[in-house]
């Protein structure tokens, strides 16, 4: 079995080398942040699978949450002379020197999922990623439609200072503020985790205003899943007594929706492989592309949950 496997692997290698030398394949260097969450793993898989499907040669490097690893990887991409460099920066700042080196080498850069702060915007060609503010707006819009513009809202925010937490709050409040009968009476951080989401929801429900809460808005699905348990333990029906909307669109959220315990989830799509490589192809061909490209993301409610559930990959 083992021998068979290694023979097979060797065969594949030879085949790979042959085909690589045969056709003039596009070579892309991609530096990923790490593997810190299921979302990130799905993101990585999507990129790898799409590259394989399209026959693009992908040099993949995992930075393990460290900027120095990522800079090293970017320099090695220059040395290898890849056609396009794409990466998800670990942090926002400190990229100018290495990006300038890349520019001098004449390699176009595509940012994926996270942005960088640079004084010279020509250092990268385009940025493709989720628009967190828009996700907040989508949650708000869905809620307006669902409740007819009347709601007493409790909000579970993400980790203080995190970009998705700030932006998802901003987008949501933008929509809510135009409806005078929708107000947020409780807002507290649940740290993006189930345990904290549950703990904070418990305290929301026990406050004197707790009985008025008709809606829960959670900045991610995990906090909503924790809060659902707190609501059940308080003897209420999540999804009915309290309408729940959250963001991310992970599998657990779809399961909860199928069980009628969650009402809506706004997708934050990690499966950007197809869109990313469409973009990379254009960039490699020298076509002009927009500086900021939003990932295609949907809004799913209970009615779609059962049909969508088997398709969820993460």
């Amino acid at each position: 079995m083992n021998l068979f496997r290694s023979l097979l692997a060797a065969g594949l290698c030879v085949a790979g080398v042959l085909s690589a030398s045969a056709a003039d394949k596009l070579t892309v260097g991609f530096s990923q942040i790490g593997a810190e969450s299921a979302w990130r793993t799905a993101n990585t898989d999507s990129i790898k699978n799409e590259a394989e499907k399209r026959g693009i040669k992908l040099q993949f490097a995992d930075a393990q949450q460290k900027q120095e690893n990522q800079i090293k990887a970017l320099r090695s991409f220059i040395a290898q002379g890849v056609d396009v460099i794409a990466f998800s920066p670990v942090v926002e700042t400190g990229w100018e020197p290495v990006l300038r080196e890349i520019k001098r080498a004449g390699i176009p850069v595509v940012l994926s999922d996270r942005a960088v702060k640079v004084s010279d915007p020509s250092l990268f060609v385009t940025f493709i990623g989720s628009d967190f503010v828009e996700e907040g707006r989508k949650a708000g819009r869905w809620l307006v439609e669902k409740t007819g513009g009347k709601a007493v809202i409790a909000e579970l925010t993400g980790t203080p200072g995190a970009a998705p937490a700030i932006d998802r709050k901003k987008g949501f409040e933008e929509i809510i503020s135009t409806h005078p009968e929708m107000k947020i009476i409780k807002s507290q951080s649940g740290d993006f985790t189930r345990a904290k989401g549950k703990e904070v929801m418990e305290s929301f429900l026990k406050s004197p205003e707790g009985k008025q809460i008709t809606v829960l808005y959670a900045h991610n699905d995990d906090m909503a899943l924790g809060a659902i348990q707190a609501i059940e333990e308080a003897g209420l029906k999540p999804g009915k007594d309290i309408v729940i909307v959250s963001i991310d669109g992970v599998k657990g959220a779809f399961e909860a929706m199928a069980a009628g315990k969650l009402n809506c989830t706004v997708e934050c799509n990690p499966l950007i492989g197809p869109q990313l490589f469409d973009l990379i192809k254009k960039v490699a061909a020298g076509q002009s592309v927009a500086k900021r490209i939003a990932v295609e993301e949907g809004v799913y409610d209970e009615s779609q949950a059962a049909a969508e559930l088997p398709k969820r990959q993460y």
């Binding site: 203080p160 200072g161 026990k206």
Partner: peptide
């Protein structure tokens, strides 16, 4: 302390 801060709506920041 934690529960008090939740109950009094003290912002996590």
């Amino acid at each position: 302390l934690s529960t008090t801060l939740y109950a009094r709506n003290v912002s996590a920041d």
